[in-house]
Amino acid sequence: MKHLLSAADLDAATATLVLDTAAEMASLAGREVKKLPTLRGRTVVNLFYEDSTRTRISFEAAAKRLSADVINFSAKGSSVSKGESLKDTALTLQAMGADAVVIRHPASGAPHRLATWVEGSVLNAGDGTHEHPTQALLDAYTMRSRLGRLAGLKVAVVGDVLHSRVARSNVALLATLGAKVTLVGPPTLIPVDLRTEVCYDLDSVLSDTDVVMMLRVQRERMNDSYFPSEREYARRYGLDGPRMRKLPEHAIVMHPGPMNRGMEIAPEVADSARSTIVEQVANGVSVRMAVLYLLLGGKS
């Protein structure tokens, strides 16, 4: 594995290797000394063109636990905001000896472009409405550790699938790992041809699902006529207490964060024992350590 650009690029063996490695990384997390010397002398650049403190911190923690040098390059207040092109930035990072670049970018495909301009590894930390592969990996890791398996799991992905890079990555990865995904949301927010089962009625899928993954719905979508009002959205597609109680006893509720409490998810659900939201954050660091190790831990 040279880059991690898209969850769709991962075959089942590689994805499983990441999850297994993440499990080992997680087992090291409880130790007195959390730092490992593995990536000593390696430089990881966090190149963030969008504010995303949680994702950046997660990658930063992962890289630092593996002893890599971390350089945070945020687009705000840098040469990037002065109009430097991504290519020129790439050449700068190249000259600085970056072994890996973790990129978050509002344009779909920006990590693919970057990978053609730098010699080091490129990790996609979210690109536009395309993909967010480490989020999908940490979600799969969370499902596996809660439910013991991925193959055959029934996963309902609920909400604004159209604009969600998390959904795209999850659909691709879960299919590879043998889970059965159903997309649920208003027809306006379900993209065409994602080659996955689609249902417009949340209530009809709840009783037969192992995982409900709630996606963040941006309130601005309302202004673009994707749905009429917040209230109507919450009524039709929000996960509240009564809906949660329709789920099978073992089923879990996931959310990639940040949540709109009261919109797509009721506080009662977010704070319930079924919710894996806090675990997802912790697992994020282990999964990102695994990915960094697998990309940088060997001969380059």
Binding site: A8, G109, T129, H130, R168, V192, D193
Partner: peptide, 16 residues
């Protein structure tokens, strides 16, 4: 819009 609205645009996350 960035490319033809269809299966490829959906996969690539580009507005159709």
């Amino acid at each position: 819009a960035q490319m033809h609205e269809g299966e490829v645009a959906t996969r690539l996350g580009l507005t159709g």
